[in-house]
């Protein structure tokens, strides 16, 4: 794996037992992602997008093949090592936001730093900075149930970026948002990608997202059918 590469998969296969049958969710996928990419795995439901993201996010392990994420072989990681890798270097953004309901916005964003044991002063500063980036500093004391969908997703983004991770994985991040909120959220992500140089990998079939991507990897039935770099000029501003 080259130094600039953050992720490399070689002959990645993921199978799930389905009764007596076996479902091949990912079939022999070899891909690599470099630092600062703004890429997307696109394809219809059931094509294996989320499974791919789960494996490179160390939430799941491959059935066959090798997956190297930030220098660590995913298939060899212990549960604890995988948790550490996620905590320090990987941020997740989910379709349904997955905010912790009893926590305030501030506490939700603070959570990854609490796990890292960051001192309280630094933690507070980092959380407010992250909320500033997503434009929600004034909602720090609100609870998730007091936020709109767009605001919730921006809190989820703040939580993903607060620890300044090398890799941010976004699974259908706009699926529960209207067009306006989708564009706002995506513009925030583009800006963060440029400012933080974090690598963004999306899983999506949403055209609104696709038009922002600089690299599109099309997945159908667990196989990569197309991997194309997009013209930066074509991105919406």
């Amino acid at each position: 794996m080259q130094d600039s590469q953050l992720i490399e998969t070689q002959n990645l296969v993921k199978k799930f037992p389905m009764g007596r049958e076996t479902l091949v969710a990912l079939d022999n996928i070899s891909l690599s992602f470099s630092k600062g990419e703004f890429s997307g795995i696109i394809g219809p439901s059931g094509s294996g997008k989320t499974t791919f993201l789960n494996i490179i996010g160390t939430l799941d392990v491959p059935s066959e093949g090798n997956v190297n994420v930030l220098g660590a072989q995913v298939e060899n990681l212990s549960h604890k090592e995988a948790a550490q890798l996620r905590n320090r270097h990987i941020g997740f953004i989910f379709q349904t936001f997955n905010l912790l309901p009893v926590y305030t916005v501030f506490e939700n964003v603070e959570f990854p730093l609490l796990l890292q044991g960051v001192p309280v002063d630094k933690r507070k500063q980092a959380v407010m900075d992250a909320l500033d980036w997503v434009g929600l500093a004034d909602r720090a004391k609100s609870r998730p149930n007091q936020l709109s969908g767009g605001e919730s997703q921006r809190v989820a983004i703040a939580r993903a970026i607060v620890k300044k991770p090398s890799l941010i994985l976004a699974d259908e991040p706009t699926a529960n948002l209207d067009a306006e909120n989708s564009h706002n959220v995506l513009q925030t992500m583009v800006q963060l990608n440029q400012e933080l140089e974090a690598t963004f990998i999306f899983s999506t079939h949403d055209e609104k997202v696709i038009q922002y991507l600089r690299r599109k990897i099309s997945l159908i039935d667990g196989k990569v059918v197309k991997d194309e770099a997009m013209d930066l000029v074509a991105q919406p501003s």
Partner: peptide, 10 residues
Amino acid sequence: GTLISLGMTK
């Protein structure tokens, strides 16, 4: 699931 994805061990 969210806690685990954020880096908490089981």
